[in-house]
Structures are given as structure tokens and as C-alpha cells.
Amino acid sequence: MIMINISNAYTGGYSLLNIFPSLGRVKSALLLGCAAIALSTFPDVVDQAETYISFLGALIIPLSAVIVADFTIIKKGRFTTDMLHAMMKMSNKLNRAGFVAIFVGVLFYIALPASYSPGFLAFFFTGAIYLAFKRSSLN
């Protein structure tokens, strides 16, 4: 159990390290471990974890749908050096169609009952909405 928890803190620390590279691997793992211990002192967080995770899924699933639809259909599975240079220069524009599609997808996910498999339906619905928005004036 200790090794599993250390491994989870270490991989979670890598995620934190991606956000704050100056922390270093050990400090980010320790920081995440301390945050996990602090959260465990609030029983409501632990007892209601399923609710929190469900709300997180309501955002992550539409976000994933936009990313997949954009890369596979809009960009046809290619990532060119020009796209990379645009990202490095921060000259890429705000993707309004993506934000609107994610917002609509989150509402759709929340509106569906659990028996309808909201994650599966919201993923495809959001992807379709995003493609429709990209082809319309929200581009």
C-alpha cells in the first residue's frame, strides 16, 4: 500500500511538474503528497469523491471530444512545424468554437440521466457540435 501511494504521488507530482517546471520532481511529489494528506482531513471530500469526479468528467469529456475532433477531422491527424511555430509564438487565436462546444457539451452531460451513459453520448455530441461550429461563423 505504501509503494502504491508513493507511486501515485510521484505520477501526480509529474502532472504538477508540468504546470510548475521550476519545482523539480521531488518537491512537486512532496507538495502533491502534502495536499493529499490535507484533503484527507476533510471527510466530506472523501465521502463525496464520486460527485466531484462526476463533475470533473462533465468537463473533461467534452474537452476531450473537442481535442479529438479538432486533431482527427479538422487537422486530419497532422501536426505541422508551422502549427508548432504558431504555438511557440503564441500567435494562435482563441478557439471560440471549442469553448462554446465544451460549454454546450457540459450542459448536455449534466442534463442526461446516468442510465443513458452520459459520457459516451456527450463525447460524440460535443464533437459533432464542435465540427458544426467550426463550419459556421464561430470559426
Rank of each mutant, 00 (worst) to 15 (best):
E50P: 11
T81D: 12
N92W: 06
S64L: 15
L32G: 00
G57P: 08
I53M: 10
A38N: 03
S54I: 14
V66W: 05
G13H: 00
I74H: 01
D70Q: 07
A29I: 02
I53W: 09
R78F: 14
V26P: 00
P21W: 02
S15A: 12
F103E: 08
M90F: 14
D47A: 14
F42H: 10
F99L: 15
S54W: 15
I19G: 03
M87W: 08
K75T: 08
S22R: 13
I53H: 04
F108N: 01
T81G: 05
N92P: 03
I73K: 02
G13N: 02
F103C: 11
G24S: 07
L16Y: 06
L94T: 11
N18F: 11
L17K: 10
D70A: 10
F79E: 06
I110R: 01
H85E: 14
L107F: 12
L84T: 03
F108E: 03
S91E: 06
V45A: 13
A35T: 05
Y109T: 05
S22I: 14
Y109H: 09
S54K: 08
A97K: 00
V45W: 11
C34M: 11
R78I: 14
D47V: 14
I37H: 02
T51N: 10
L23Y: 04
T51M: 13
A38T: 04
A97Q: 00
V100K: 02
I60T: 11
N95E: 05
I37Y: 03
S28L: 03
G77W: 02
I53A: 08
L16Q: 07
V100A: 08
M88Q: 07
A69E: 00
L17Q: 14
L59W: 03
S64R: 03
I73R: 02
V46G: 09
A29F: 02
A35P: 00
P21G: 05
L32I: 05
S91W: 01
L84C: 01
A49M: 12
N92L: 10
T80P: 01
K89M: 08
A36I: 09
M90I: 14
A49D: 13
F20M: 12
F99I: 12
A86H: 05
L32E: 00
M88F: 11
F99N: 06
S64A: 14
K27M: 11
P62I: 01
I74K: 05
Q48R: 12
M83F: 06
S28P: 02
F71A: 05
A69G: 03
D70S: 07
K75S: 13
I19Y: 08
A97V: 07
M88S: 13
L30R: 00
L84F: 09
I61T: 09
S15L: 15
I37G: 03
V104H: 03
I110F: 11
V66D: 01
D47C: 10
L56F: 08
L23S: 10
A36G: 05
G77I: 09
L39F: 12
G98P: 01
L16K: 03
K76R: 15
D47H: 13
F71W: 01
V45H: 12
Q48K: 13
G98C: 02
V106D: 05
A35E: 00
T41F: 15
P62N: 05
V104S: 04
M83L: 09
M87S: 10
R78L: 12
Y52R: 12
A58Y: 06
P21K: 04
A38F: 10
N18L: 10
Y52K: 07
I74D: 02
K76Q: 12
I19T: 14
L31H: 00
N95T: 08
A101L: 06
L16R: 05
T72H: 08
F71I: 08
